[in-house]
Design a protein around this nucleic acid. Structure first.
Lengths: 341, 341
DNA sequence: TTGAAAGCGCTAACAG
DNA sequence: CTGTTAGCGCTTTCAA
């Protein structure tokens, strides 16, 4: 068990001053080629690596970025992380992931423990708790301290920072319009409670699409789900009380659950009822029938968010203007919808 | 934009020595109650938080743990991370996640960049690349430096460290035995290439179960998949060339893909063919028919792994004995298998 | 009860 | 070309 070697030890061993060693290792040209060679050889032999904590303290930057997400067991967030990791690593940053578990309190605690020097900047997607409470003081504090913050997906207008989002309203509009084009006339909406930003926006898109075609919005065709656990119950109630020939759901899970219920009740998909979900993940591909779905391109969202953050950290961005990047969505057609003739 | 306040600033502001401030803030009883109150009030007012980098450098411990996983877009690994996060956070640790993307090189680089002071210990699950190469020098180096290492799920015998695994062989044995009990006689196996440790172990369990019932092992009933991308092709070939009444797959994705293909070919599940998968995730629940599956309890694996690591970091564990914790699996029966009468 | 000083490992300005 | 020194923010002797 040989502990990591330090500059001090090398310096003593070779009887060269510590600062000369430091420079020699980094191949500073003001050090003679002789000593450089000697020091580098010794360093390599003993497998010297600069202690990153010391470097962080010295440089006042850690090369770590903090990511706060509501849940990790969501395929969408997973793909976002994948994208973040990819660009962060390629630019020499590590990723510290914290889960808020949809709780306001956990989100605050997580951010507070990271803000004290552990990271150089934040990437955050708000918890439901925070969105319900509308309390953003923790975000403001972080910004006040001059720490860059990029919000993604679940963002909020009240905070002035860089953001990466999908045009949820537009995407929902297109999905519902597609259902209408394929002949659906009564389209049910399975969404979340209103305080979840993306749920609300997608609901708006749904309504716009209907309005555009002059189809009245029937409140009874909409269900707003709070807890994922009891979504089956609510969806069953919807089937009990209403008739419809199309379903638009704000995530793939709701859509797939609804499809299973529909099939159990003897409906043919897509002949009797068509389905479109949001978040194109494995579930959409593997469902039977496979689910037409709006791809949010999470990986891309992660990549862009990380790039925005790191650019700002490295001051490649103007200090005061904040951008909002909008990721294009794609409607992926599969078996759960009729084909446009 | 007010930067974080430091001890030095407080000390200057209050005209008290820096060390007194430090002690006062931590409520050291050797400081008079008066100054303690005063300092603490000032600290709270200015929202003082000790700089964690400085503390890390001083204490030679970071309260960070590094997690290296092959992929994050796998439901199983996601649940493991969830478990790790849960216990890490509750014990005051942050989690730094790195993805090896199944590549040996990335795994090595990731570990090297974290080992230099960023973290106190490692939690790793090997990449396919590493398992194929059988090169574990990076793991040994970490151990040599005295940095605790816990391996989970994809482990290897050659490294002497704490481990958390599932009894893959036994679990596969039970799954296949179950298929046999429900009347299957020709059971196909969809597995990975042999160098993936868990794939190999599950294959062994499959063979044992057949042997126990005196059923000959037919090599043609087994397919070993390397790239997930072309699994459909291989599975289709299997259906083309063989007849069977049961399928055991080493993950839920293979199982679900196989079910879809079977249904397309007109087979009834489970009447004509029964299916069991490994890794009980959303896919198993949402498939049509829902898939009987072996639950690996990833969250629990994450929790236990993190606990082992942190216990060792905090020296609650004997220095030299290494444990291997085995997580019990559960066979979750769903619609893809016949019921035992 | 308070404070000065050393030191964690490193970098960089400045002197020699 | 090399070395001395100071300092990043904090804790911890040890001395006053």
């Amino acid at each position: 068990m040989k502990k990591l070697v330090t500059l001090k030890q090398i310096s003593k061993e070779l009887d060269i001053s510590i600062s000369t060693v430091s420079k020699a290792i980094r191949n500073h040209k003001e050090i003679s080629l002789d000593t450089r060679k000697k020091v580098q050889a010794f360093a390599k032999l003993h497998n010297y690596r600069p202690n990153s904590i010391a470097v962080s303290l010295k440089n006042q930057r850690t090369k770590n970025i903090g990511v706060i997400i509501p849940e990790i067991v969501h395929h969408f967030f997973t793909t976002v992380i994948e994208g973040i990791e990819k660009v962060a690593n390629s630019r020499g940053y590590n990723v510290i992931v914290c889960l808020s578990s949809e709780s306001f309190e956990k989100e605050v605690v997580n951010m507070q423990t990271l803000v004290n020097g552990s990271i150089d900047g934040f990437l955050v997607s708000l918890s439901k708790g925070t969105q319900a409470k509308k309390d953003y003081h923790h975000l403001n504090e972080v910004m006040d301290q001059g720490m860059p913050l990029v919000m993604f997906d679940r963002v909020v207008d009240d905070i002035d920072c860089d953001k990466t989002i999908v045009d949820d309203t537009q995407a929902a509009f297109e999905a519902v319009s597609f259902l209408l084009e394929t002949g659906c006339r009564k389209i049910a909406l399975i969404t979340t409670v209103d305080y979840v930003s993306v749920g609300k926006l997608r609901t708006e898109g749904y309504e716009k699409a209907l309005q555009k075609q002059g189809i009245p919005i029937e409140p009874n065709l909409t269900i707003k789900i709070e807890d994922i656990e009891n979504c089956e119950i609510l969806i069953n109630q919807l089937f009990d009380s209403q008739h419809f020939d199309g379903v638009f759901a704000v995530n793939e899970y709701f859509a797939v659950v609804a499809m299973k219920i529909a099939q159990k009740r003897g409906f043919k998909i897509p002949d009797d009822i068509s389905f479109i979900g949001f978040t194109d993940g494995i579930l959409s591909k593997c469902a039977t029938p496979s689910l037409s779905s709006i791809a949010q391109h999470g990986t891309e969202m992660g990549e862009i968010s990380a790039k925005m953050l790191i650019d700002r950290l490295e001051e490649k961005e103007d200090e005061f203007t904040h951008l909002t990047q909008i990721i294009k969505t794609t409607l992926v057609e599969r078996e759960s919808t009729k084909r446009l003739s």
